[in-house]
Design a protein around this nucleic acid. Sequence first.
DNA 1: AATGAATGAGTGTTCATTCAT
DNA 2: AATGAATGAACACTCATTCAT
Lengths: 204, 204, 204, 204
Amino acid sequence: MVDEQEKRKPGRPKGSSTAQTMEKILFTASYQFMELGFEKVSLDGVAKACGVTKASVYYYFNNKAILFTEAILFVLNMAYKSTRKIITGSGELKDRLLIVAERYMANAHVDFETMMREAASGLSEEQTLTIRAGESRLHELLADTFQEAMDKKELVPGNPLLLAHAYTAMLSIRNRKQVVNDEASLKQTARELVELFWHGAAPH
Amino acid sequence: MVDEQEKRKPGRPKGSSTAQTMEKILFTASYQFMELGFEKVSLDGVAKACGVTKASVYYYFNNKAILFTEAILFVLNMAYKSTRKIITGSGELKDRLLIVAERYMANAHVDFETMMREAASGLSEEQTLTIRAGESRLHELLADTFQEAMDKKELVPGNPLLLAHAYTAMLSIRNRKQVVNDEASLKQTARELVELFWHGAAPH
Amino acid sequence: MVDEQEKRKPGRPKGSSTAQTMEKILFTASYQFMELGFEKVSLDGVAKACGVTKASVYYYFNNKAILFTEAILFVLNMAYKSTRKIITGSGELKDRLLIVAERYMANAHVDFETMMREAASGLSEEQTLTIRAGESRLHELLADTFQEAMDKKELVPGNPLLLAHAYTAMLSIRNRKQVVNDEASLKQTARELVELFWHGAAPH
Amino acid sequence: MVDEQEKRKPGRPKGSSTAQTMEKILFTASYQFMELGFEKVSLDGVAKACGVTKASVYYYFNNKAILFTEAILFVLNMAYKSTRKIITGSGELKDRLLIVAERYMANAHVDFETMMREAASGLSEEQTLTIRAGESRLHELLADTFQEAMDKKELVPGNPLLLAHAYTAMLSIRNRKQVVNDEASLKQTARELVELFWHGAAPH
DNA sequence: AATGAATGAGTGTTCATTCAT
DNA sequence: AATGAATGAACACTCATTCAT
């Protein structure tokens, strides 16, 4: 038989760049999951965006649930570090909160709870818990800060964890294009939200 | 058949007896979309939950995008009416906001923006706009109320639409089981959130 | 955009013969499973052999395990009926056994136990039991016959079920091409096996 | 590397120290193929069971077909030697057959013909023939013994090869859990089968 | 001698969609 | 008004195989 169309055989291609494929996959997956949510991300899509095949993704991450878990943990970790650096800095708490807000609002992304609900059925108990833990760390970081401020009478005494959640919930406005649609409106919104959070809607 | 063109006439249709099927589908779909988001709802699932076949769903709604649009508009409409009744009532604004909050937080549901983003690729330009309009109505209802209150010096002057968005954004805390997990914590959280919204975090 | 290659849309094709698709699938699947075993049968293969798509197979059988179960039960049922008709007929038992042997050996097929072992991991407990029950019926039919014969002193008293298994086990020689390779050798082998089964290898 | 061409020299290789890896792979593969059949054995599974990587398996055996061939030949060879030792021993033939039966039935395994059919499409003509030859040797060993016995009037004159196949076929009952499920029933079954083989089912 | 990285081809399964009745 | 039958496209996942080191 003569095969005119030279058929590509399976196996590793001859000349292929080695460099950190795994990291590329993790970055890409992180981005896509945050951008699109669990279901809408296809492993093929991730693979193609990385210039590799689906099988390569599986080489590094045994299944979608694992890739998701690793990717989200990666993002949460980055967010934690970044927030920590800002929030433990010097200056007025209100000012630091503004910087956190601007950082947080820099990229639009899917709602975390919604994403988790979507992914839940595909994750193992343990995976869910791990991610939850990673997320809690972030809110607890804020809560601790709020607690300290309450102790110093800089904030009204109350439930600091709830305050933390209220804060991040407000920042999710970032995703609403009717409100935030460019760099300027973003900064402006961040400022107004922090102001609202700090002083409330009623006249003081 | 509901097609994109067809403008729903206001008021209850007179004769249509068996159009109950269509309503059942619409109700069920509304519930499922709010509960699960766009992708995770399958037309077969909706059909089965209604005790009809998938083809019947298609008989009334030409495709998933249309069903989604109708279902969401239906929900937004209900929410609008319900909110309007509360917000235009008598009593202190802060008290009315609390009732709105409790109503809104009664059922956990997917984040609206996230759902829209998920659905976006499947919707026509027009459908997206229609839904956006329906949603805007809700926020504008709140915004108008806030505007009035500002005029009456009950609220600090500012951007009333942003205030409306901030308000609903805060209420999304409802979905976080770490914070809200039973009837009691729900009520308590609603109260604290309204308090925060009203007076802010800093001592007055 | 102009699409030169008219792309086929999903959905039912316009002119397609309706006739008993499900039966065709069941027959084909039965044949292939018996011929190839569980793993080597692909639903795509079955579909193509039936002139339909894989999705059509799924329309009738929710998954491979179900198709397998139904297909094997179908075969076992046919075998049962056929054997029953022969074995409960008149004439010498030995002669009837010969007919059963010839019928049984008519088609080569995969070893039943081997196939079940292969399939086991994919089947539910219940499915395995159902198939096992169907198979037991067959051996019990033989066993009952043997028991009767023992009562009538036509056979040495002993374990009739073991005898039944020994009998069918011997017939599996059918699959060995070194021994059976044409119509003539098949008939001849059947006769010799029954003779061996009946009188044993040692001189009487 | 073991390639198709390479003819294994008889006798134990002298120096090869680390060739233990190859033997381990061969043992493991043999076991798994006999236990699971061709398709269900994955080279990765074999590798992991040996504590090496898949690539190592490929280092010693160029592809699955070769590994299969070597593994099966290995098993057949062992079985041949073991059987030969028993069958050429002293004592009544019937007693020796019983020992062979017990040895053969010691481990449950996939049906040989079924396995070969499953593997067939992946094997080269030559590989199939080689395995077939190895298997024939076993049956011919039995057949020769039977032939001798016929000559000595210890057995009814007839087709000795068929008798050999009938004998091993009967022993495959071993795999049916409805009949054989523990050490005791195994021994008992072996005895009854040999009895049946020897004297037949009818009263003498 | 042994491995890590990568791949193409397939497999089971789901789902929105279409058409004839 | 409603359904049953059928489909194409996509998706998660597996596996034998290849290549560079």
